[in-house]
Write a protein that binds this DNA or RNA. Structure first.
Lengths: 200, 200
DNA sequence: CTTAGCCATTCCACTTGTGGCATGCACTAC
DNA sequence: GTAGTGCATGCCACAAGTGGAATGGCTAAG
């Protein structure tokens, strides 16, 4: 996940200062990235500005540091939409934020594009499960340090079981969203969509 | 999550070549890291060797590239155990692999160390839930690009609900493991521990 | 009155990771 | 036979992220 894509997505919704973006990443966007540094935000912003993807205007704050409000340009919007609706290659870990980062900006997609994205994610994860679920999990141990094999086995089984449940639940939720999108009539409003979600 | 810590952990269990380590990362270790490059593995190995954390011996493979088997040194073991049992600061995203990376090497911990780790993770995530679960999720939209607000609302609610369930399930599993560790008698073997796991 | 936290930006040295290329043997499947 | 995959290492340019410090005014709590 590129920080730039997230920043572009936020700026595509509304103009922000670097500080606002950092706040976004710490609050609403905290599932998209851990512990992003201020410096990283400002550096990305600088780079994107020199690429012509964003521009800024200065807000004078008498007595304090001036605030720069960044806005996405048409070119930036093109870059963002190309990323958002372009080819998606799922990362190895389903917990990685690549997929959620994209659907965070679902408002900029059509229903068809969203469905394509979901289908890719679904088939990838299903394959993953098929390949790894019943694989041999034992691992050789040959160490001079004290090693508690019983504890290792317990924790290993616990982790495997938990991982399996997590991915199963994830698949079910993806399937549910997919069904809602397919079942919903063309011009369904938010209320109608949400009640379909509840129904499933 | 440092690649180095994972590599040290694997080498602490048994000697491996760079290629083996890469295979580990693609199979058993695929939940610890997405898409690690060969070059990255070899570079880390080189750096760790010059720090004195690992050494290598050469296996001649007649006709093919020589294989280097890496072994952890006493110093490397110290560094690894310092990381493993040292202070843990949970990342923002509970899906990030920091916690699982540590418990992957639970065999090198005592039960008490493992319990401390679990307690830190538990209290952090509980606080996180308390702070964010019922927070206002609405976001301003002020864009010139086409934006489907109904779709955005649907997906936003779906994602929130799914995230909430995921973290709840995670908390429950952590609590369960904690209880098993507390309930198990001192010298319990693997079989006994696993049946306790099933019982919960 | 003072401490703490929020607003806001910038710089810097450094560490990590990405993505691809080159090399070359052995074995299997078509 | 030849294409693909697995074994095995290493080099390179570049992109991205880390972790901190410096600056300085504002507001609210104690």
């Amino acid at each position: 996940m590129k920080l730039e894509s997230i920043l572009l997505g936020v700026l595509a919704r509304h103009p922000s200062t670097g500080y606002d973006l950092k706040k976004y990443l710490d609050n609403h966007g905290r599932f998209l990235r851990s512990n992003t540094q201020m410096s990283q935000v400002y550096r990305s912003l600088g780079k994107m500005e020199s690429s012509g993807w964003v521009t800024h205007t200065v807000q004078q704050r008498p007595g304090a540091t001036d605030a720069k409000t960044y806005r996405i340009t048409d070119e930036g919007m093109t870059v963002f939409l190309d990323w958002l609706t372009g080819p998606y290659s799922p990362p190895t870990r389903f917990q990685d934020p690549d997929f959620s980062a994209r659907i965070t900006f679902a408002g900029f997609m059509t229903r068809e594009q969203l469905l394509r994205l979901i289908d890719i994610e679904l088939t990838t994860r299903r394959e993953e499960v098929a390949r790894h679920r019943f694989r041999d999990r034992r691992q050789a141990v040959d160490t001079s340090a004290p090693f508690d094999e019983d504890l290792a086995t317990l924790v290993g089984e616990w982790a495997h079981e938990g991982g399996a449940r997590a991915i199963d639940a994830y698949l079910e939720r993806l399937e549910m969203l997919r069904r809602v999108l397919l079942d919903a009539p063309e011009g369904a409003g938010a209320r109608e969509l949400l009640s379909l979600l509840d129904a499933h």
